[in-house]
């Protein structure tokens, strides 16, 4: 992690000056639904920090609160050293937010969208146009600059939307599901851009439903589910939290899957997770010996095992063992 050079401010007491975001007990309710239910979050400056959670976990609501768009019902937070509730103007001046859904004027061209924002930030005349053109070039959108945004593809919109957040280099960039709906190439492009920004000191707080995205990109990951933070750490720490290893078993005959699951559960005393393919099972094991004993009892019971493997858990499996349900 590089140290931040943008938005440098005198640190307050203790380590607060080193934190881009610091939240305590943030809460947001919509009628009966508690969307965010008391979340603590500390994001060091210059870090890529991922918030991982399934649909409806409260990711968007959390991001909206931190970017001053939604008012917390409880708790407090500081962003780049400014209190969210008392200094929303200062918070806004030091952040940028790219929401889950593109916030662009579809009728205008890509260039006009950026010129509009550049002017709102205070760039005048030619310098606003220059700023727009630099951003378009950096995001590979120069060719589409004079086309209306409504003619853009999903990936182009996403890039323009992120570009729109970088008119002025923010201290913290909030990205709500930056790669949802993108093809693998476009996704790689966004990842490269995020890494590039972080390398030069921009703190990035992003949300994702993709476990591999959090794994690949983020130095730290907070897993949230039903409005609560259920785990936090580096990807390695989260994996370690799940147990010493994970046993993956592929069953030849899909009809025997339930029987096999029951045997594994009985032997290993951990909940068995069914794979997406149907004929695969995975389960935490406390030791390699337990794993081999379990395989042996499957074979003894006449179940044909077509493949098995012992390894560290994927983030998918981490999520499963933390929440008791799948991520999607």
């Amino acid at each position: 992690m590089t140290d931040t050079s943008t938005g440098t401010r005198l640190p307050r007491a203790g380590e607060e000056g080193l934190l881009a975001v610091s939240a305590r007990g943030l809460k947001k309710r919509f009628g009966e639904v508690v969307a965010v239910d008391g979340i603590d979050l500390d994001v060091p400056k210059g870090m890529i920090f991922a918030i991982l959670g399934p649909n409806g976990a409260g990711k968007t609501t959390l991001m909206r609160m931190l970017s001053t768009l939604a008012k917390p019902d409880g708790g407090s937070a500081a962003v780049m050293g400014h209190d969210l509730l008392n200094e929303p103007g200062e918070v806004r001046a030091s952040i940028a937010m790219t929401g889950q859904f593109a916030s662009l004027d579809e009728d205008l061209t890509g260039r006009d969208n950026l010129v509009l924002l550049a002017r709102l930030w205070g760039f005048r005349g030619r310098s606003a146009k220059q700023r727009a053109d630099d951003l378009l070039a950096a995001f590979d959108l120069s060719d589409a600059a004079t086309r209306q945004v409504k003619t853009y593809s999903g990936g182009m919109r996403r890039r323009l939307d992120i570009a729109a957040s970088l008119v002025v280099t923010p201290g913290v960039l909030f990205l709500d599901e930056p790669t949802t709906g993108l093809d693998p190439t476009a996704r790689q492009g966004v990842w490269r851009m995020i890494r590039g920004l972080a390398q030069s000191g921009v703190t990035i707080l992003l949300t994702t439903q993709y476990l591999d995205e959090a794994d690949q990109l983020a130095a730290r990951i907070a897993v949230i589910d039903k409005g609560r933070k259920i785990a936090e750490g580096t990807s390695r720490e989260l994996k370690a939290q799940t147990g010493s290893g994970f046993l993956h078993v592929a069953i030849h005959d899909p009809m025997q899957i339930e029987k096999a699951a029951a045997i594994l559960e009985a032997r290993l005393k951990h909940k068995v997770r069914r794979g997406v393919e149907g004929a695969e099972l995975s389960v935490t094991t406390d030791s390699p010996k337990d794993a081999s004993d379990a395989i042996a009892s499957l074979i003894d019971s006449g179940i044909e095992v077509s493949d098995f493997r012992l390894g560290s858990p994927s983030l998918d499996e981490v999520f499963f063992s933390l929440t008791g349900h799948d991520a999607s």
């Binding site: 943008t6 205070g122 008119v167 002025v168 280099t169 590039g196 030069s200 921009v202």
Partner: peptide, 18 residues
């Protein structure tokens, strides 16, 4: 996005508040 392009984007300070 290339590295040089990334550099073109960074460290952009806000002009005087309009």
């Amino acid at each position: 996005m290339t590295d040089t392009q990334t550099h073109a984007l960074l460290g952009i300070q806000r002009p005087r508040r309009p």
